[in-house]
């Protein structure tokens, strides 16, 4: 499964980092605490969060995450989008809130 599959399945917005849509998705992680993500998210995970500032990209890059999904229509800050382009790690968006979106994503990833 790739990031592109998830974008198409859930009609996600691609804010930045489209060059990384082919990245492989191995799982998901849901948190707004960056030290929690740092400590416990796994490589290849899609991070579902409402943190839109640049440090979330630093973590995505250091942890080799597949993509970031911003919930509730939140848009990435400009520096976040720039870093996403540079790293080739997509920042995506949904209008749904975290619980709803994570539930659907979990079913989709587990069902494949």
């Amino acid at each position: 499964m790739t990031v592109k599959d998830i974008v198409e399945k859930f009609g996600l917005k691609v804010y930045s980092g489209a060059s990384g849509l082919g990245r492989e998705v191995k799982g998901g992680y849901c948190s707004d605490l960056l030290s929690d993500v740092m400590g416990f998210a796994h490589e290849g995970s899609v991070l579902v969060t409402l943190q839109a500032h640049k440090n979330v990209m630093a973590i995505a890059s250091l942890k080799d995450l597949a993509a970031i999904v911003l919930v509730k229509g939140i848009k990435p800050e400009e520096e976040t989008a720039d870093a996403s382009e540079a790293e080739g790690i997509p920042v995506l968006g949904t209008s749904e809130q975290c619980f709803e979106f994570s539930g659907k994503l979990y079913d989709y990833i587990e069902g494949k």
Binding site: L33, M38, H53
Partner: peptide, 16 residues
């Protein structure tokens, strides 16, 4: 507010 300061930093450092 940025998602730091949850008191996980030093424990994460020790664990890793």
């Amino acid at each position: 507010e940025m998602g730091f300061g949850a008191g996980m930093g030093l424990p994460n450092m020790k664990d890793n």
